[in-house]
Amino acid sequence: MRAQFVLKEIGIGLRRNLTMTIAVVVSVALSLTLFGAALLVSKQADSMKDYWYDRVEVSIFLCNKTDPKKDGCVNGEVSNADREAISADLKKMPEVDQVFFENKQDAFAHFKEQNKDSPLGDSLTPDQLPESFRVKLKDPTKFDVISSAFAGRAGVQSVQDQKKLLKPFFDLLTSARMAAYGIMFFMLLVAILLIINTARVSAFSRRRETGIMRLVGASNFYIQGPFILESAVAGLVGALVATGLLSAGYYFGIKRGLADSIQLLKSQLIGFDAVISVLPWLFLLGIGMSAIASFFTLRKYLKV
């Protein structure tokens, strides 16, 4: 194919339908931005899960003498024999990675440290805090195994999964991602319909040329090529705009917005390399979708 001829045709076609081309570029850009954002949110969620699940523990609180006398605590404060049995059983479980024992003094020290600015710690004595086993699991999702093995056992007051505390946050990220995918779906639909219409208008406005091309024996490749490339170029420009929007969104939303204001989160936020890693998908989707949509449209309008 003669590149010069094709490039000339693409330029003419895009300029002739400038308003339609702009509509295609904008809708492709928006749908790709949402697609990229959804991918980034799930990357962000993964990164936070990695960080937090590494740190969360299952806590097995042992009975204290102040606890109500029921369930595992009917005999009052945990006995030495019960405590040792629990410790031994925990260490035998294949799911368990590490076990730390926190006695009343440690618990008191932690409590004091966490509430050092509040008067709450002053009225407390170590006696009032429960002893606990802090269990690190090899797979943080296997909480149920521990829970079913120890909840209600003699000497165990309660089994608590810290992962549960993070659940609302991850649920929020999941719904944000779903919402982005949902809006993306409709934007994608709009984009595809616009591409189809643009290809149709383009084919109609050049029906004289294509009619002659057919008569002199130009191949389908020659006849449809400029139209398909025209759509692909619009898709490419849309992907470029989406790249800009995503980068700006990353810079102002995550880098300047979250990372600088919440120091705690800094290490868990995705870097710009994550943005770069989703870009190939944007370009693939933008260019591929446009080219395929116009290819199928033209098959109907430019028959041999």
Binding site: R2, I212, M213
Partner: peptide
């Protein structure tokens, strides 16, 4: 095959030379 019609079917925005060359350009 070559085809000629009553209504000529020339491209109005191309010169005589370009109209004839077009038939060869599009078959590569």
């Amino acid at each position: 095959m070559g085809t000629v019609f009553q209504d000529f079917r020339l491209l109005p925005n191309k010169t005589v030379r370009e109209n004839v060359a077009f038939a060869l350009e599009v078959i590569g």
